[in-house]
């Protein structure tokens, strides 16, 4: 891969049903995610998606592109920028930003950003894959 190469983007529509499904699968029933009445009374003024739900999209993308190189050596470091709400469409983009040598290995380093439909970043950071 060349610096500047992009991976195929991943798009996901976020719905309250999807958030509830994630809560059911993971057992994370924090009311900020699943209780609309409670969430309306918080500073978010409504429910928001679980951070790990949105975060985990990166694994789907990296699995498709790198398979075992992701599961056995992949690294990710991201920061949460904005809440994700039902009705949002999230687009995850990854672009090869650098090659690094660390720990005796050569690494592909991607800039990754999750954007909502208004092109605002909701998460961003870096992913490293051993070459």
């Amino acid at each position: 891969m060349e610096i500047g190469n992009k991976l195929p983007v991943l798009k996901k529509d976020i719905t309250q049903e999807g958030i509830n499904r994630y809560a059911n699968a993971t057992g994370d029933f924090n009311p900020i995610h699943v209780d609309e009445e409670f969430a309306r009374g918080t500073p978010f003024k409504g429910t928001i998606a679980h951070g790990f739900y949105i975060f985990a999209f990166v694994s789907e993308l990296m699995m498709r592109s790198f398979g075992k190189r992701w599961t056995n050596g992949g690294r990710v470091d991201v920061r949460f920028k904005r809440p994700v709400r039902p009705g949002d469409t999230i687009t995850l983009r990854a672009i090869l930003a650098d090659r690094e040598i660390a720990g005796g290995l050569s690494w592909l380093v991607f800039d990754v950003v999750w954007e909502n439909q208004m092109e605002q970043p909701v998460l961003s950071g870096r992913v490293s894959i051993p070459e």
């Binding site: 992949g74 690294r75 990710v76 470091d77 920061r79």
Partner: peptide, 11 residues
Amino acid sequence: HYRQEYEFVSV
């Protein structure tokens, strides 16, 4: 949730 890091080592 402010920051999240992971190192995946094995499956």
